[in-house]
Design a protein around this nucleic acid. Structure first.
Lengths: 335, 335
DNA sequence: CTGTTAGCGCCTTCAG
DNA sequence: CTGAAGGCGCTAACAG
């Protein structure tokens, strides 16, 4: 491996001079700068960033933790975060928790031992608190994304879960639906709670009562166990519409319904939170509350960088990004 | 920051003993091992992986370079690679070139300076050769994914581009289509060349001639410029079907056609390479050659780890993963 | 403008 | 079974 000492020797200067050329610090005569640069190229020198980080105590690496890399919402968000990170001179290390606390913890340990400069953190749920505290204890700045956690202060970028859910459900109500099921994520996740509360509010505002037997809970990542869906279908007074709390749940529900010979929207209307990224264009069929995923990443990254570089005010900032109701054809008027 | 020296002091041993406890090397009495471990927990010690890597000359970090993080083929592949990496005790650093050579080069520089132990590399195209040679020069093992590059030897995991393309186009021919357009990626990419050659072969085997005015080239990432599509539509003898060389091109084409008032499949049949990951289930509409994306990642990672850990034979291995023709409803019989 | 010294946190080697 | 010395590649702080 080529080191600055190899360069120094061949260029007839000290290692320190080479270091200065590399970092553009101090004053160096144009002549030696050129000479050193030439030798660096000849020897194909690549700085060792670990040695560098070890002494500087910073890595210029940030980490983005998302809960599902196969979910287009998060990949689009990742693009936003990546672009913003590169622009600010940082590299981005992606991590994928799969909505799994243990996997999340593993990645947090890794961030700690890699000494990343900061983390953009979409938690798996409230129990992620432990992992966040771990970061806090080791003075690693972080910004939280998409989901809020009681008991910890941090900069936040959230969607308008309650509002978005209310709009979706009111849309169904306007179409004449009165019995609306909800397929929600785990109640351990703030967005699940808020989307439920928007669902509830839409009912109350319209003089409808909420029936808890129509609300089922699943992992946000996938639908899996379909038994609860059967309970809905065979309900003594079955729903005519479904509100899925995110895109993956909607996919799972549609698939499960299809297996049972039921079509959306002819047999059952369906709306959901989140779009499907680029594949949305393929089939603009689902009525959704679309979130500005790219902005989540870009804005979150901006907050993070500001915090790291000390440009942020001490108090925590909370950004709420609006979602947009896109009315398409997966929900029909009743009858 | 807590170091092994802090632990050593508090436990009344030398730093070396602490290091041995951490790494389970050498022989240590059960008593001191316990004492040291206790102190480590009390102080919330986290090993500094950079200091460690600096002396060991290995990082236990691998990198996965893909060309489009918003493409479900690559995110599914990423999941496969991640799972396999974690299983083998490595961490994975994701990088996203966006089909952009300069961005790819930036990431390669970063891999070099981070001294990753190995790279799973999906190149942007033939000109990526430069970047691969760079890795080779610095003795960083790599495995190539999805695309082959003339002029460099490496382990390879590829799809059966030619075969898959042939099957798709023959399917169209069986449906009665005779004038089949192709929307291809850049000819700088091996999969684009092979898919074209499968397209060509399907024609020749069926006694049809290939008309180059029906073949257009685009970036695999997105459709953008739609003028070439207009040329197809207003062709004096227009195509009745389109073969898109990948999923993103299919999305772009469908969108552009729709804008022009043309529907698939009623006005034009369309088939493409690659599925759409989880969102495929949403709308099993497109007839595709589906590739085992997860396997690409998992198998590639396995080859990479074997190569790094010296368990691989010196000669390069080339794995070809079959694609599966999924006949759905986006291609109809002519007339 | 350039060099010397010291040390970031850890592990290898060689002594006890 | 345990410790002391030295060095991985780099840069901050201080000299000149």
């Amino acid at each position: 491996m080529i080191t600055i000492y190899d360069i120094a020797e061949k260029a007839g200067v000290s290692a320190m001079t080479v270091s200065r050329v590399i970092n553009n610090t101090g004053r160096i005569s144009e002549a030696t700068r050129k000479r050193v640069k030439k030798v660096m190229e000849e020897l194909h020198y690549i700085p060792n960033s670990m040695a560098r980080s070890l002494v500087l105590q910073k890595t210029k690496i940030l980490s983005l933790l998302i809960t599902d890399i196969t979910n287009p919402f998060y990949t689009t968000l990742a693009r936003g975060a990546e672009d913003a990170a590169l622009r600010a001179g940082y590299r981005l290390l992606f991590a994928n928790s799969d909505e799994d606390y243990a996997k999340e913890k593993g990645y947090v340990d890794m961030m700690l031992s890699t000494r990343v400069d900061g983390v953009l953190f979409a938690p798996t749920g409230d129990h992620s608190l432990e992992n966040l505290l771990q970061l806090q204890k080791h003075n690693i700045p972080f910004v939280m994304l998409d989901r809020e956690i009681p008991g910890i202060g941090a900069d936040l970028v959230l969607g308008d879960s309650k509002e978005g859910a209310r709009k979706l459900v009111e849309h169904l109500i306007e179409l004449g639906h009165r019995r609306i099921a909800m397929i929600n994520g785990s109640p351990d996740v703030s967005t699940a709670r808020l989307r439920y509360s928007g669902y509830r509010e839409a009912h109350l505002l319209n003089g409808l009562s909420v029936e808890d037997s129509l609300v089922i809970h699943r992992n946000f990542r996938d639908f899996q166990d379909e038994s609860a869906l059967d309970a809905l279908i065979h309900h003594e007074n079955p729903p005519t519409a479904i509100f899925a709390a995110n895109n993956m749940l909607a996919i799972g529900a549609i698939q499960a319904l299809r297996k049972r010979g039921l079509q959306v929207p002819s047999d059952l209307s369906l709306v959901c939170f989140d779009g499907f990224g680029p594949t949305d264009a393929l089939n603009p069929f689902l009525t959704v509350a679309s979130q500005p995923a790219y902005q989540f990443g870009a804005l979150g990254m901006q907050l993070l960088v500001e915090r790291i570089e000390g440009e942020a005010t001490p108090e925590h900032r909370k950004m709420i990004l609006p979602s947009e109701l896109l009315i398409r054809s997966s929900a029909q008027a009743l009858r």
